[in-house]
Structures are given as C-alpha cells and as structure tokens.
Design a protein around this nucleic acid. Structure first.
Lengths: 210, 210
DNA sequence: GTAATAGTGTCTCTGAGACACTATCGG
DNA sequence: CCGATAGTGTCTCAGAGACACTATTAC
C-alpha cells in the first residue's frame, strides 16, 4: 500500500463518497419509460432511480449492475456512463458525487411489479434524478436517431413496421414511413423470411447488419 | 451530519478517492497541443496532465481549476467534464476514480515555460492520460466541426481566413475555402471593419453572432 | 500593370421529405 | 372483388463540395 511522506494512505484524506444511479429505460405502451422504486431509509417514500454507493474495489459498471440487481432484480445488462452530478447539496447525507448511467432494455427483462413512469410525463423524482432521466432520454434518443435499434430491443428478426414503431416510441414522435425505410435499410439485411399471420401483405423480416 | 443506524456517517465507509485531470488544449504552430507537466513525487519524471484529488467540499469544476493553477499557473477558464476513468489498476497508489476534463484556451493564457505536446504526435503519458487526451481531442474536434470557434480562441473580430486556419489546426486537416465560408457565415455577423496592412484584398472582419 | 488574397456564381451530387403509385396478402 | 398493409418511383428542396470566375488591395 502506497503511503505519503506522513505515512497516510490516500483513503486517510477526507474525500467525497461516490454513488452510481441508473436510468433504466424501456418501451411500454408505445412510450419510453424509466424504472423507479420507492426509497426506504433516507428520503423514504420518494421515487428514485436505482442507485448505490461505489465500493472501494468495484468498477462503476459493477456498482451499476449491483444497484439494478438489489433494487429491481435486473441482471446482465451493461449500463453506459452519462456524466457526474456534483452539486455539493445534491444529497443531504453528506458529500456524494453521483455518476449517472443509462441503459435501454426490453420490457420482459423487468419484473412485472417494477415501477415504471413515462419519461415525458414523469412525476418529481428525488435528489437530482430528474436531470439524470432527462440526460438519459436525450442520450438514447440521439442514438435512435442515427441507427436502427442500437440497443437491440427487437429480437433476431423484425419487420420494418416493428422497427419503425419502436423508434417512434423511443423518440416520442411519428416518423415518415418511406424516409424511415430508406434511412435504416442500409444497416439491415433481409433474413429471407416474412411475417405471416397478419392482415395485409406479409412484411419481409430483417436483422441488423454488421 | 447524517448517521446510519450504526452511527456511522457516509465518510466512515471505505470508498474510492476521486481525482480530476484536465486536458488543457491550445493551438500552436498550426496544430492542437496539450499542456503537460513532469510529475514530482509519485511516478516522478513522467509526463502527466494537470490533476489533483477532489476535496470533500469542492465541486469538480473547482478542483479542475485548482489543478490548473497549481500545476501550470492557469486561471479563469471553465473545463468541461468528459467522463470517468475507473480502471481499478489505473493508479497504483490506491483506488482512484479520475474524472477527465477538457478545455481549449488561447496560447497566451499559458506561461511561456508550460510543456506542450502535439495531440497527434504525443509521447507516452502516465497512467491513462493518453486515453484522456484522445477523448478530449475528439470532443473539441466534434464541436469545431459544427460551430465556428466555439471555444472563443479568436478575439472579438477576425477574418474568415483566420477562422479557417484555426479550424484546420484544431481538426488537423485542410478545409475547402468556399464550403467552409458558407458553412460558418450563418453564425457570424460582420463588424463592418476590414483587416488592413496585409497583402492582397483586405478581408472583412466578423464576430460570432449571439 | 502584376501578384496576392478575398469573395461569389453556379453546377453536380446526395440525402431528406412528400406524394402517389404499385404489390401482395386474407377473406 | 375489397380492405389492409408492404414496398417503390419520382419530384423537390437544401446543403456539401468542386471549380471557375470576379473583386480589391499593395506594390
């Protein structure tokens, strides 16, 4: 263990605590929603994002996954870092830096009883979690403007109508059919199959190329 | 002070130390350069970005400014957050999260004796500072692709040729004169003056429109 | 006048968007 | 056949880039 000239290690100096918070987004009812839980303990009853303190030998990703597991029973995703929230008054328990994360997952990886609120019509969240959700939504929306289903919410094969419906739900706005089609087609490859059992002309199935 | 049910405050739990590092960029000799210093103390002699540990009651911005002041005597800028570097082995003194920052400043706010290395031909830096510089350069380049001199390196008035030269230096690539002109003109307003004392037709002066 | 730099007119190409059209299914 | 959804041809518009041209200064 490293020591400075006075024999103290780094941890002996007072320093901020570090937390991670995760805006776990999903699409339900044609709209982008975020998973929240009701706090127990400090600020009990308020709606909050899943979060936890980062342990000394843990990566941010590991802490984020632990928070998801402990609060809402989700495992196996890989949240992405957004940015650090460092307002000195953001947590009245002490000095806490929070590193906001975001991930977008299919609805069915979440338990049925997980709390979900629509991103665009959400109630007040605790601490600065509102700003985290806003940043998270902007992040995934920017990616969905560029690429077809970058989070892979759709399965191995999907129709263009299904893809477009997903994008409209994420972006919260309708998209023109023909333009959308040409926009994404370069990044897709046809599987050869078609979607049957529906009314109208059967739609071709695609998967993401790459 | 908040206490948990066992009477301990947040700071009583072992938690990672937090540092800030700043990639302070500038343009010299027609190329993007980053300010470095030679470390004293730990890892002495290696080239490093200005950095410091974040004190418990300090914002990240304040810590970043303190690092710049202590290491290279720069004051008054406002570094922007890039992202957190959290490899558990990134600092062999202990567990340290580093929050990389970036700023782009005019050469003349730096002391003459500040160490500068070209971003695109840089020597090895200590720890993970190489990756920080790469991220910082990509960040400012993305902004310079979009907007005319977003960092405000040029003074109150400048010619289009001066602006183009700056952008070429930041991006590290030549730009077509006519296209560049039309690209930035919408975001500029003419001051009415011209640059005199040069050879050729005098150039009109512009300022950034607000 | 010439050299040098500033600034513009215009053509082409590409991609977004709008619109209308054709294609193929179930019933 | 009809209703419904899938998929395409084509026109227009705007912006990027290339190229050649004109404009205005110092000398």
């Amino acid at each position: 263990m490293w020591r400075d000239e006075t024999g103290r290690s780094l941890a002996d100096y007072p320093h901020p605590s570090v937390a991670v918070d995760v805006a776990l987004l999903t699409v339900v009812d044609g709209a982008l929603q975020v998973a929240v839980h009701r706090r127990a303990g400090h600020a009990a009853g308020e709606l909050a994002l899943p979060g936890t303190f980062v342990r000394i030998d843990e990566t941010l990703a590991a802490a984020a996954l632990r928070a998801l597991r402990e609060h809402i029973g989700v495992t196996g995703r890989s949240p992405e870092q957004l940015r650090v929230f460092d307002d000195p008054d953001r947590d009245d328990r002490g000095r806490v830096l929070a590193i906001a994360h975001v991930d977008l997952v299919p609805r069915d990886v979440l338990d049925d009883d997980v709390g979900l609120v629509a991103v665009d019509r959400r109630p007040r969240l605790t601490f600065d979690h509102d700003a985290m959700v806003a940043a998270a939504a902007e992040h995934v929306r920017a990616r969905y403007r560029r690429d077809p289903d970058p989070a892979g919410l759709l399965g191995a094969a999907f129709t263009l109508a299904e893809l477009q419906g997903l994008h409209e739900a994420v972006l919260g706005a309708p998209l023109p059919k023909d333009t959308f089609r040409r926009h994404v087609l370069a990044d897709l490859e046809p599987t050869g199959g078609v979607r049957t059992g529906t009314v109208g002309k059967p739609a071709r199935l695609y998967r993401r190329a790459g």
